[in-house]
Design a protein around this nucleic acid. Structure first.
Length: 205
DNA sequence: AGCACGATTAACT
DNA sequence: GTTAATCGTGCTC
């Protein structure tokens, strides 16, 4: 449907311009690519979470449109990158339709290209810890606030997602989103976290 | 102007 | 299991 073959072009706008839960599921196995200064860094997406609408009390847009959340109200296929805990950057993909705030938080990837750079940026950490958290993957791939609002459907900004692998349904697990603190029910328990449980490596690169 | 808190991480007991 | 790090955001005064 979205070309899982050898193509190396960014996923099209139509991929993102769908309900956020569908996009989140569809991103498992896709390849997150960061191009910087001619070098290519990438990883296969293995975990992500959906945030949907102003009624979702876990979504940043619960307070409505603000300077920070404006990107979530924009067109599908753009990056929503935000800063938190005074030190961490988080990367999301905005989904459709335009005017409705929704996004997918990328929580974990499995390192593919550019491992030497990731190892340097994640110095002191073992391979399995390079990109297994939302702030870890942005650090390893060099994603920060300069990319907020970037168009993921074009290679121009140096950040996009390509079709790559397809996560078999039997290996996809859903569950509650992580780290929601005092978010009330039912939002805190909704199974809007998607994880590909494949043992891609058996623990080794 | 002041404040509490956060879609986290790493280090520690 | 606990906790410090560290600062932008958005709310309340």
């Amino acid at each position: 449907m979205y070309n899982t073959g050898m193509s190396a072009s960014p996923l099209p706008r139509d991929f993102y311009d769908r309900p956020v839960l569908d996009v989140a599921r569809g991103l498992l196995g896709a390849r997150l690519v960061r191009m910087e200064e001619g070098r290519r860094l990438s990883g296969w997406i293995v975990e992500c979470e959906a945030y949907r609408g102003e009624e979702d009390q876990a979504c940043h847009a619960r307070r409505g449109r603000t300077p920070r959340t404006a990107v979530m109200y924009g067109p599908a296929g753009r990056a929503y990158v935000y800063f938190t805990y005074g030190m961490h950057w988080m990367l999301n993909c905005v989904t459709g339709p335009e005017g409705f705030p929704a996004a997918v938080l990328l929580r974990a990837v499995w390192p593919a290209e550019g491992r030497a750079v990731m190892a340097e940026r994640r110095k002191g950490q073992p391979f399995a810890r390079w990109t297994d958290g939302p702030a870890k993957l942005t650090q390893a791939l060099g994603v920060d606030g300069a990319l907020n609002g970037a168009d993921l459907c074009s290679p121009a900004a140096g950040l996009w997602i390509e079709p790559a692998l397809t996560a078999p349904e039997a290996q996809v697990v859903t569950g509650p989103r992580v780290g929601l603190g005092k978010t009330p029910e039912p939002w805190v328990s909704l199974p809007w976290r998607f994880r590909w449980t494949a043992d891609l490596d058996g623990g080794q690169p």
